[in-house]
């Protein structure tokens, strides 16, 4: 029981932050810049150490949504989950930019029961909180956790009407269109936390192809007061972008391995608001 909860907690942390420990969650589209009037992309989705190799866990596809250029919902087709990765297709029939996203907003937290601190199960939301807490629980502590993993693909000319922020969690508002990235050029993105500029946010960008080089090649960037940052792309390829905020090291919700001390599991303070953002960006050769 305990072990199960710990695993659930670790999984939740993984899903929430995308960066928990060394594992990275990603979606990798077959193309991001497409021509024609009727086309397809196929997407690999996995949680792995190296980018972009499926070597660890598949990413679940049931929460993945597609938004078409006109704002209507598209479909995830031919979804399949294997040992190391999931794969699915998206049919592109409208000109413009599509969003393919896995977004969640839930509650992390814990409560005391029979003298022990127990974690809220994965997937708890504001609506299900009452059911998630057993009778007799005391000292319930919760914090919202929002995660967004999204990619963009464009059929024809890029459009920007999908970039209106929702105001929940960490979001990227492109200044440079994410399907108009070219090696040697600079791109600017703005990050928002709950709809407001996320200043001082640490953003990590890592080029794919890690397996075949020694250096990670990670770029560590920080947003300015306006939540914006600029990246100059050193080479063409697929890049993994990640940012997260809240729930710092050792804080509540930080992943705890099997070897964590058994004794007092009490968090040091109340749980913190957490939010994470992940995207995969394709940079073309000039």
């Amino acid at each position: 029981m305990k072990a199960r909860l710990l695993i659930a907690g670790a999984l939740a942390a993984l899903t929430m932050s995308g960066t928990a420990q060394a594992h990275r969650q990603w979606m990798l589209p077959s193309s991001t810049v497409l021509s024609g009037t009727d086309n397809w992309v196929t997407v690999d989705a996995a949680i792995s150490n190296d980018l972009f190799y499926f070597e660890h866990h598949p990413m679940r596809t049931d929460s993945i949504t597609v938004t078409q250029p006109d704002g209507s919902a598209g479909k995830v087709e031919n979804a399949a989950t294997g040992k190391y990765r999931s794969t699915f297709d998206v049919h592109l029939t409208q000109p413009g930019t599509y969003r393919i996203a896995s977004v969640s907003a839930g509650l992390m937290g814990s409560y005391m029961l029979n003298g022990k601190r127990e974690r809220l199960p994965r997937g708890t939301t504001k609506e299900t909180l009452a059911k998630a807490i057993p009778a007799g629980a005391t000292d319930v502590q919760t914090a919202e956790a929002a995660s967004r993993n999204e990619i963009f693909v464009t059929l024809g000319a890029p459009t920007a009407n999908l970039f209106k922020p929702t105001g929940v969690g960490l979001e990227m508002v492109p200044v440079t269109h994410p399907n108009d990235l070219v090696s040697g050029e600079s791109a600017t993105f703005q990050f928002l936390l709950d709809g407001k500029p996320a200043s001082g946010l640490k953003v990590t960008v890592i080029p794919g192809g890690i397996r075949y080089r020694d250096a990670l090649g990670q770029m560590d960037l920080t947003t300015g007061a306006d939540g914006k940052l600029s990246i100059t792309w050193p080479q063409p390829g697929m890049y993994w972008l990640n940012a997260s905020t809240g729930g710092g090291e050792g804080g509540p919700g930080a992943a705890q391995g099997e070897g964590a001390p058994q004794a007092p599991q009490e968090p040091a303070g109340p749980p913190q608001r957490r939010a994470s953002y992940v995207s995969t960006l394709e940079v073309l050769a000039p």
């Binding site: 193309s31 497409l34 024609g36 073309l284």
Partner: peptide, 12 residues
């Protein structure tokens, strides 16, 4: 037309 984007500078 599916492959027009491969003429990539012109496509952009």
């Amino acid at each position: 037309t599916k492959w027009l984007r491969d003429v990539r500078q012109w496509w952009r």
